[in-house]
Computed example of a mutant assay.
Amino acid sequence: MASRRSLVRRAAALATAATAATVLAACGSSSDSSSSSPAPGHSGHDMGAMHPSGTASAGSHDPQDVSFAQGMIPHHRQAVAMADMAASRAKSQQVKDLAAKIEKAQDPEIDTMSGWLKAWGAKVPGAGKSGMESMPGMDHSASPMPGMMSDDDMGKLKGLSGDAFDMAFLQMMISHHRGAIEMAKTEQAKGAYGPAKTMAKSIVTSQSAEITEMNKMLGKQ
C-alpha cells in the first residue's frame, strides 16, 4: 500500500514538473517573440521610408513644370478640337490623316499632364469646347498663349469645309504647333521634372516634323 502511494506521488511530481517546463517554454517563446517584434516594425518603417523616396522623384518639380502642364493641356485640347473637325469637313485625305495623327498623339499627353498636376496638388484646367474656356478670366477674343486660336478663329474654321477648310486648318495648325514648340522649349530650358522635359522634347521633335509636312501640303516646300 505504501509503495502504491509512493508511485502515485512520483507520478504527480512528474506531471507537475512537466507542466512547469511547458509554462517556462511558453514564457520563453513569448519573450523571444516580443524581442523579435521590432523586426517587422523596422521592416514596416523601412517600407515607409521607401515611399517618400519613391514619390520624391515625382515631386521634384518646379513652378515651370506646373505652368507647362497647365498651359499645354488647353493648348492640346484645342488642337484635338481642330483635328475633330477635319473628319467631317476636310477634303484632303492627307489632312484627315494628319488630324487623326495629331489627335492620337495629344489625347494621351493631356491625360498624362493631368495626372502630374493632380499628383502635385495643382489645378487641372477644365475642359472647354475650344480649349479656351479652361482658362478663367481670359480674354477669349485674343490668343492667351503662343499659337492658341481665339474663339473667333475656331468659329470660322468650324464654318468651313472642303478646300477652304483644308487651307485654313493647315495654316492654323502650323501656327498652333509653333506655339506649342515655343512652350516646350521653355520647359526644356527651365523645367525640373524629368518626364515633363522628356515630353517637351518629344513635342518639339514631332510637331516640327508635322510643320514641315503641312508646309509641303500648302506647297511651301
Rank of each mutant, 00 (worst) to 15 (best):
T22D: 15
R10P: 10
A142E: 05
A56F: 13
F68E: 07
I181E: 02
A142P: 00
L7M: 12
D153I: 11
A184N: 06
S53I: 07
S3C: 07
H76Y: 08
M154S: 04
P144V: 02
M172C: 08
Q188M: 15
T22R: 13
G128C: 11
S208C: 04
A86N: 06
S31K: 10
D153Y: 14
G191K: 02
P125F: 02
V66F: 10
M199G: 05
M135W: 02
R9D: 11
G155I: 07
K101D: 15
S92G: 06
A17N: 06
A168N: 06
D107Q: 12
G137T: 08
W120H: 04
E213P: 05
A119S: 14
A200E: 05
P195Q: 11
K216T: 14
S60E: 08
I181K: 01
V66E: 13
A119G: 09
D166R: 01
A122Q: 13
R77Y: 06
G28T: 07
V66L: 12
A100W: 00
T19Y: 08
D107H: 01
V80W: 04
D107A: 09
L14E: 13
Q94L: 11
L218F: 10
G159M: 02
A87Y: 10
M47Y: 14
G147H: 00
E213C: 05
L117Y: 07
F165S: 05
S43L: 13
M154H: 04
S33N: 12
M82A: 12
M172E: 08
P125M: 03
S202P: 10
W120I: 07
Q93D: 15
E103I: 06
S130P: 01
D151V: 08
D97E: 14
S30L: 14
S30P: 03
A127D: 09
